[in-house]
C-alpha cells in the first residue's frame, strides 16, 4: 500500500516536471532556455525510470542524455550564437500548424483512447517473453545478459551506426573552404560551355 502511494506521488510530480519541461522546449524562443527545459524533462523521465525499477536506465538517462546530448546541443547553440530571431508568430507554411496540431492530437488521442478501451489488462502481450524481471539479480546484470544474447545482433549494428555518426561529423565539419575550387566556377544559370574542354581532361 505504502509503496503504491509513494509511486503515485512520484509519478504525479515527475509527470508535471516532464510535461512542463516539454512545453518549455517548444515554447521558449531562446534555444538555451529550450535546452534547459529539455534537461528538466529528461530528468523527470530518469526519475520515472527509477519509479519503474529501471535503475540502470535512470543513471544512463542522466549521464548520456543530460550529460552528453544536451551539452552537445548547448555547445552548438553557443558556437552558432544564440539565435532569438526564430519567430514563433510567422507561419512559414500555410496550414503547417494545423497539420501539426492534427497529428499531435491524433497520436495522443489514439493512444489515450486505446488505453481506455483496453481496460482490464493493459498489455495483451506474452508475459516475460524475452527474460523475466527478477529481484534476485541486479538490474544491470539482467540487462547485460539480454543485451549480449537476444539482442547481440542489434548491439553489433549500433557499432555501424556510431561509425556513421563519426564519419558524418567529419564530413559535415569540413569547412567549405577546404573543398578544392571547381575547375571553373560556373554560375548556375548560364550554360558552362568553357568548362567542357577541361572536363574532358579530368574524365579521360
Amino acid at each position: 500500500m505504502g509503496t503504491d502511494t509513494v509511486e503515485a506521488v512520484v509519478f504525479v510530480a515527475c509527470a508535471l516536471i516532464v510535461l512542463g519541461g516539454a512545453f518549455g522546449v517548444i515554447w521558449f524562443r531562446n534555444p538555451v532556455q529550450s535546452a534547459l527545459s529539455l534537461v528538466a524533462t529528461l530528468f523527470g523521465v530518469a526519475v520515472l525510470f527509477l519509479n519503474m525499477n529501471a535503475q540502470f536506465l535512470a543513471a544512463v538517462q542522466v549521464i548520456v542524455y543530460t550529460g552528453a546530448i544536451v551539452v552537445l546541443i548547448l555547445f552548438v547553440i553557443m558556437l552558432l550564437g544564440v539565435d532569438t530571431a526564430d519567430d514563433i508568430d510567422a507561419e512559414p507554411l500555410v496550414g503547417q500548424r494545423v497539420i501539426a496540431l492534427v497529428i499531435a492530437a491524433g497520436v495522443a488521442g489514439l493512444v489515450i483512447a486505446g488505453v481506455t478501451i483496453v481496460g482490464g489488462d493493459l498489455v495483451s502481450g506474452a508475459r516475460a517473453a524475452t527474460a523475466a524481471i527478477t529481484d534476485d539479480v541486479p538490474n544491470i546484470e539482467q540487462i547485460g545478459r539480454v543485451l549480449f544474447t537476444d539482442y547481440v545482433y542489434a548491439l553489433e549494428i549500433t557499432a555501424v551506426l556510431l561509425t556513421i555518426a563519426v564519419v558524418a561529423a567529419v564530413v559535415m565539419a569540413r569547412k567549405p573552404t577546404e573543398v578544392e575550387p571547381l575547375p571553373q566556377e560556373s554560375s548556375s544559370m548560364e550554360p558552362p560551355e568553357p568548362v567542357e574542354p577541361e572536363a574532358e581532361e579530368v574524365f579521360d
Partner: peptide, 28 residues
C-alpha cells in the same frame, strides 16, 4: 514493467544510441 520483461529496458539502450547518433548527424 507491465509484462515483467527486461527486454523493454534493453531496447531503451538502443534508442539511446540512436538518439546520440541522430544528434551528432543532425548537429553536423
Amino acid at each position: 514493467m507491465m509484462l515483467g520483461d527486461i527486454a523493454g529496458q534493453v531496447i531503451v539502450m538502443f534508442v539511446l544510441v540512436v538518439a546520440a547518433a541522430e544528434v551528432v548527424v543532425g548537429l553536423g
